[in-house]
Design a protein around this nucleic acid. Structure first.
Lengths: 214, 214
DNA sequence: TGCGTGATTGAACAAGCGTTTAACGTAGGT
DNA sequence: ACCTACGTTAAACGCTTGTTCAATCACGCA
């Protein structure tokens, strides 16, 4: 995993892995044990648990920016992280990112912002190439797509992604992308509603659907 | 809401409100104080914190089913909860549901299942009425839409929904729905991609990627 | 050689957690 | 009037948490 194997970096990486696995409620002693040190040393190096998490955030953010996201958000967004997770070494970082999304905080906001920025660029390029339809409000569309795809991924992770093993996680991730890709592409190519003229009907249809029983 | 104002129900409602506000990490003493009792009495009535949460889950689930979800998942899914949150008295329950989605667990799965079932029914009705396009895999499409919309809502709540006040929460919720509705409708009516080439490429590629195990 | 500085440990601490226990008060039944 | 059962409280217990502290270890430098 690179990063000179100094003790500080080793603790930081152990914290990323442990927080990704168990969430930020994980104790300092567990992190310390993973790194082969004591709890006292952790706080000696980082000052406090919160500053440890800040260090983790910064490192993850640095890796993210370094990867330069050649992987585009294709609208499903899972592709981006799936590609990362496939490289086995990045699975802990992807897990940590998902935990951050789950917990909120600055890193989560930064993640969504970067995803949105990437999607914006990607969609604009697609539009220029004549592949993507123009939008009445491109920024709103981009934000909507980013939230939906990242949120869907987060929800999937919360409900079914609580796997302990990194490889199993990557495999599960691949399965998720494969599952959502077909309906996503279908929606993106043909839409959901028959045509534009139905929009008003749709809006009036929404308040009360056919009162079928069940 | 109501429920006879017995002490047990009062504690349960206080727990729903407190868990919704602070998450499930909230302490029993805080719940007890909200209900005007002591921590010991809470466990005397419910046995343990986990069983208290189970009682909360069951009650919330009962209210959900009782409301009969005339509010459909219109694909944005937020509509459902927004309509609920508008009735001020249901705001705590909606908050509790979001916390459950955030934490995972049985209630979260049940919520998504119910949303999916409602969406299935609604989409089938729309398709029969000629408003909704047919899908190659309707179940997959429904699941995809449910996860995306519920997940987007969850993510929004995690990042920006940490409001303390119930009314402010309902108002914020309304704003969220208003923000995502236009791009959602645009996507649903016109799609995102101009032609089917991407879908065709994908469908030809997907049948056999490197034959991984499973 | 000796000194000193930083890494590292193990123990201790205070606070919070969920839970247990003993006691008290009060109402109802016989 | 006694006894019982139950609602309720306050205190304590055991555990875990993050953090602090003193002591130990190792190594670079004079």
């Amino acid at each position: 995993m690179a990063a000179s194997d100094g003790t500080t970096e080793r603790i930081r990486d152990a914290a990323i892995a442990r927080f990704g696995r168990d969430g930020f409620g994980a104790g300092l002693r567990a992190v310390a044990a993973d790194a082969g040190v004591t709890a006292g040393l952790v706080v000696h190096h980082f000052g406090s648990k919160e500053r440890l998490r800040q260090a983790c955030d910064e490192h993850v953010l640095a890796v993210m920016r370094e990867q330069k996201t050649k992987a585009l958000t294709d609208g499903t967004a899972g592709m981006l992280m799936a590609q990362l997770a496939e490289v086995e070494q990045y699975a802990p970082i992807v897990l940590y990112l998902l935990r951050s999304l789950q917990a909120g905080g600055e890193l989560a906001v930064a993640l969504i912002e970067q995803m949105t920025a990437d999607a914006e660029e990607y969609l604009a390029a697609g539009e220029a190439a004549g592949v993507v339809r123009p939008s009445k409000d491109p920024a709103a569309r981009t934000r909507y797509l980013a939230y939906q795809s990242a949120g869907g991924m987060l929800l999937w992770f919360t409900l079914h992604g609580s796997t302990a093993d990194d490889d199993a996680f990557a495999a599960s991730f691949r399965r998720y992308v494969e599952e959502i890709a077909p309906p996503a592409l279908e929606l993106f190519t043909q839409g959901l509603l028959v045509d534009r003229s139905m929009l008003d009907d749709f809006l009036m249809y929404v308040p009360d659907p056919p009162a079928d029983e069940r």
